[in-house]
Design a protein around this nucleic acid. Structure first.
Lengths: 254, 254
DNA sequence: CAGTGGTCTAGACCACGCG
DNA sequence: GCGTGGTCTAGACCACTGG
């Protein structure tokens, strides 16, 4: 028995060929595969069934499966390799670097900075945190701060806020590693699939100035980011204050 | 004679069915249609030939044309409307607002700010301007500044630099309007297709503080942007300094 | 009604990676 | 050599728009 069934045995086989639906077939196929990613039927790095397997199991043509899979490629949820197969995307160093980290050197070089945790605590959320993470009454959070270094020079201070529900025991067992998204994925089975960033200019507070060894009042770039899971629910709120003397934030448009 | 020929009569019919090419057929079809956009065979807002017309004229199947066109939809170069046809994208208010303008109110509202030109002159480029716009010796530029207002409150100072070659007589005949990209397109036949933005935090200079009626030293968001034409050549360099007290820059990731 | 793009199918052939 | 995804074709049917 080599192959996993496409849908778990305890769920009834999805019916694709019912008429009178607003969804197209490829959208239904997309949703079925997407659900498999959400419930970890196929884990990051693993290979998916081939187009032909999906097509025969779901009673659609190969072209319909292909359209669904290619749509998911466009969202970076999976990637495909000719002659090999279709794989679930992972939060590797490279992916985090190019998809979710926008700070580059003035020379254009992309480096993932090292980091150093300052404090980490489980708390009740502030009203703002509760709203940002769409929590309900009684939900707890994990909040921590870290400094990030480019070539051993402290450049960014981050305040990160997670819903404790999804990260039981976070930070108490071991120091959270540098690449958090990969850690969320490998340890908690949570994949960050999208993020929205809001940028403002601000100035370094006395505390920040001390920590980063810069002058109080130095202009700082503030990045306020909500990261969302595969199902669209928010899973991390992060505020980064970045000294952009030697670094800049890049964004492609169009 | 209702229909334009797909390629100009003075050019030889493109050969799609030559073997031994690294390009696929749909890439060749894409390039042919793309070239039609570059040389204004079809102008912004106009309808393109139907899939079937392209397919018969270029001796490929309808599906191949469809793939080429859908790839161009993904780049926002054209848009399609079921039952009607395929159209060349325009720099309308809405497109500029959602594709090339990233500043939104703290309440999330998107408004295109009004603007007011300060000065406009034709000059020889500085070395930096020459390099940013990839100019060659002797090329002239147009450089101008403007203030931008949200609800009559001055918020952004922009310095804009254009290669004079592409914008003959710019600013001398009439005041450049608020929506510059639409103006480039309608008056000079130049479509901005892509842009790369680099952000830093800075502080308001004495001059900026006076103009924007804020305190000297107020933190400002600096947006350094190169806009590129359909063929990828740079066509505008813009530096915006934005007071982000009441506004912020937004960016989607993933 | 005719024409458009959107969906779906079936099948052929190719390019690639791997055993 | 085999199985994978990538390209390409041909044709059917649908949904939508406009005259």
């Amino acid at each position: 028995m080599k192959n996993k069934p496409i849908v778990s045995a305890d769920k009834k086989m999805p019916v694709i060929n019912d008429k009178k639906s607003t969804q197209t077939k490829y959208q239904k196929v997309d949703n079925i595969i997407r659900q498999g990613l959400i419930d970890n039927t196929w884990k990051p790095g693993e290979i998916l069934p081939s187009e032909i397997q999906f097509a025969t199991e779901l009673n659609v043509s190969q072209g319909t499966v292909r359209k669904a899979l290619n749509d998911m490629v466009a969202e970076h949820l999976v990637f495909r390799q000719q002659g090999v197969g279709t794989f679930v995307s992972e939060h590797t160093e490279r992916r985090s670097l190019f998809l979710y980290f926008s700070i580059v050197g003035n020379d254009g070089a992309r480096i993932l900075p090292e980091s150093n945790i300052l404090l980490c605590e489980e708390k009740l959320p502030s009203p703002l945190e509760k709203s940002k993470l769409e929590l309900i009454d009684g939900d707890m959070i994990v909040r921590f701060q870290r400094i990030r270094y480019f070539n051993n020079i402290s450049t960014i201070i981050e305040t990160i806020c997670l819903p404790l529900e999804h990260f039981p025991g976070f930070g108490s067992e071991m120091e959270p590693p540098n690449n958090l998204f990969r850690f969320y994925q490998s340890t908690y089975g949570i994949t960050v699939a999208k993020a929205e960033e809001h940028l403002k200019a601000t100035v370094a507070s006395a505390e920040e100035a001390t920590i980063l060894n810069i002058d109080e009042g130095t202009p700082m770039l503030e990045i306020d980011r909500i990261a969302k899971m595969l199902d669209g629910r928010p899973v991390e709120w992060r505020i980064s204050h970045c000294d952009t003397s030697n670094y800049r934030y890049v964004s492609e448009r169009g």
